[in-house]
């Protein structure tokens, strides 16, 4: 079942001198239910722009973007988001933060329904080991705890797709690994569909079932001087065994990380559009005539 579908999406921003600056260049993408997609790319490649498009915070310059076959409009509960920071309401306790979403939908006079959701929220908080902290305010929590609340807060409303924008970027390495395994557990248990943006290649290769690399470093037949926007240059299926973080030490894993680093992050390594490593079963891409006229 398709959750997310991009077709020929361009995103350009106007520049002060009147030209348009192309950020995303003819993007095609389909994400199926249950997929754990990780998205990496060099800085400035448009990862955040892509997320903003999916969220509905920005609009595509061209092309269509659908979520479950509906055109993606303004931000709504079909999409969930976990940011690196500012994720929680500072004036609400942990439990209130988690209940914010459900309580927007359930009016206060439906006491039974509210009690039910509350019990469920407590159960989820228990699961992520925050059972003792439900009455605390976000400023009383550590960074890792805050992000756990943010994840629960977003997944309790059951979004079609959960977007995560470098959610563990500000955490120390130990906490980070703990959060990674926790997220994988939640993903499995609740059959989530996730698009996880990170700048950490190892994290991307470890977490995902599908690895997407967005990069502006590639070549095509539009001429040397053409200002290209970013495209997916890698779209691979990843095979994950055990949840253990030990896989990170295996040679295969390191080889994968190195090859991705070369393909996506080296400004001098320019693959032609027709030679991209797009071997994921759901991967597809239509090129315009100008892009491959040879």
């Amino acid at each position: 079942m398709n959750i997310l579908h991009f077709q020929d999406v361009d995103k350009a921003y106007p520049t002060p001198n009147g030209d348009d600056f192309l950020v995303l260049d003819n993007i095609d993408l389909t994400i199926k239910k249950g997929e754990f997609c990780t998205l990496v790319g060099p800085s400035g490649c448009g990862k955040s722009t892509l997320l903003k498009l999916i969220l509905g915070q920005e609009q595509a310059t061209q092309g269509t973007l659908t979520i479950r076959d509906n055109i993606a409009g303004n931000p709504d509960s079909t999409r969930g988001i976990v940011y690196q920071r500012y994720s929680l309401y500072p004036n609400k306790t942990v439990l209130e933060n988690v209940l914010a979403g459900p309580f927007f939908k359930i009016p206060f006079w439906k006491k039974d329904e509210r009690a039910e959701v509350k019990a469920y929220a407590l159960e989820l908080l228990e699961k992520v080991k925050l059972g003792e902290h439900t009455a605390k305010y976000p400023h009383e929590l550590s960074g890792g705890m805050q992000q756990r609340v943010a994840i629960i807060q977003a997944l309790i409303t059951k979004p079609e797709i959960l977007l995560m924008d470098e959610p563990f970027g500000a955490l120390d390495p130990g906490t980070r690994e703990f959060m990674q395994t926790l997220l994988l557990e939640l993903w499995e248990e609740y059959n989530l569909t996730i698009l996880f943006v990170t700048h950490d290649l190892e994290e991307a290769c470890y977490l995902g079932t599908r690895l997407l690399v967005l990069s502006q470093y590639y070549s095509d037949d539009r001429g040397e001087d053409f200002q290209r926007g970013a495209k997916f240059v890698v779209d691979q299926q990843l095979h994950r065994g055990a949840l253990s973080t030990h896989v990170k030490e295996k040679p295969d894993f390191n080889k994968l990380v190195e090859s991705i680093r070369e393909q996506g992050f080296n400004p001098k390594y320019l693959q032609h559009v027709k030679e991209f490593d797009l071997n994921h079963p759901d991967s597809w891409s239509t090129l315009s005539l100008e892009e491959h006229n040879s």
Binding site: L55, Q57, P75, D76, S77, G80, I81, A100, G101
Partner: peptide, 9 residues
């Protein structure tokens, strides 16, 4: 943005 994704009006 987050508030809107949580389903608020």
């Amino acid at each position: 943005i987050k508030t809107m994704t949580l389903g608020a009006s």
